[in-house]
Simulated scan of single mutants.
Amino acid sequence: MRDLNQPARATGPGVVADGPAGSATVLVIDPAGEASHDEIPATWRELTDRMRVVWLRVPAAPEWKSTVDRVLSMHRDDPRTVLDVVTSGPIAAEVIDLVRHHEDLVRSVLLVDPEVEVDEPFAQVVVRTHDAPDDRIPAPLPLGHPDVVFGVVKALNELS
């Protein structure tokens, strides 16, 4: 398991976003705190021509749960907006619990290397790292990793 408690991860913005407002939105709740330079990771930028990506950096947003509630509630009055949530590893169970309070707003929760079993109709695992001697990156796989982007796009296409 990777150490996600490095002090440098807490610097930078708590939330960064890119893509057209009012379009389908992917809320990425990142326990590792990528996107520390005021923009989403490069691997996700190609998606922003057709969807909005909101990246919440948990280490830089100590009140991340209330931030998630606020972001989801902002979309309550816009029935056109499709919301999907992506998260990983140690906070998967907490995110699923938060989404239960907003099930009418969120189409899916897409998980990467969750530390819990997933038994919710709106949640699915899109990438799972297998601990093997040849793994270069320990679980949870960073949400900016190309395999994660591929898994998320594949899941979103299947949901459409």
Rank of each mutant, 00 (worst) to 15 (best):
residue 38 D to M: 15
residue 157 N to A: 08
residue 6 Q to A: 08
residue 32 A to V: 01
residue 106 V to G: 05
residue 38 D to E: 10
residue 148 V to L: 07
residue 84 D to I: 05
residue 82 V to T: 09
residue 39 E to F: 02
residue 41 P to F: 08
residue 34 E to W: 04
residue 95 V to E: 11
residue 116 V to N: 13
residue 69 D to L: 01
residue 25 T to R: 13
residue 50 R to P: 00
residue 77 D to T: 08
residue 4 L to P: 00
residue 5 N to P: 00
residue 144 G to L: 07
residue 114 P to S: 06
residue 26 V to Y: 00
residue 73 S to V: 06
residue 42 A to F: 13
residue 148 V to T: 10
residue 123 A to Y: 00
residue 91 I to P: 04
residue 102 H to P: 02
residue 120 E to I: 01
residue 48 T to W: 12
residue 22 G to T: 01
residue 52 R to C: 02
residue 74 M to D: 05
residue 116 V to F: 15
residue 5 N to G: 07
residue 115 E to M: 13
residue 15 V to H: 06
residue 102 H to E: 05
residue 148 V to E: 06
residue 111 L to H: 06
residue 44 W to V: 05
residue 5 N to D: 15
residue 14 G to E: 01
residue 92 A to R: 08
residue 14 G to V: 00
residue 68 V to S: 00
residue 59 P to N: 03
residue 107 R to V: 12
residue 19 G to M: 15
residue 30 D to G: 03
residue 76 R to Q: 14
residue 67 T to S: 08
residue 140 P to V: 14
residue 119 D to H: 07
residue 68 V to F: 00
residue 88 S to L: 04
residue 27 L to F: 11
residue 80 R to Y: 07
residue 120 E to P: 01
residue 20 P to N: 01
residue 13 P to Q: 04
residue 105 L to P: 01
residue 28 V to G: 04
residue 74 M to Q: 11
residue 2 R to I: 02
residue 31 P to M: 07
residue 147 D to C: 14
residue 29 I to W: 13
residue 114 P to C: 07
residue 43 T to V: 06
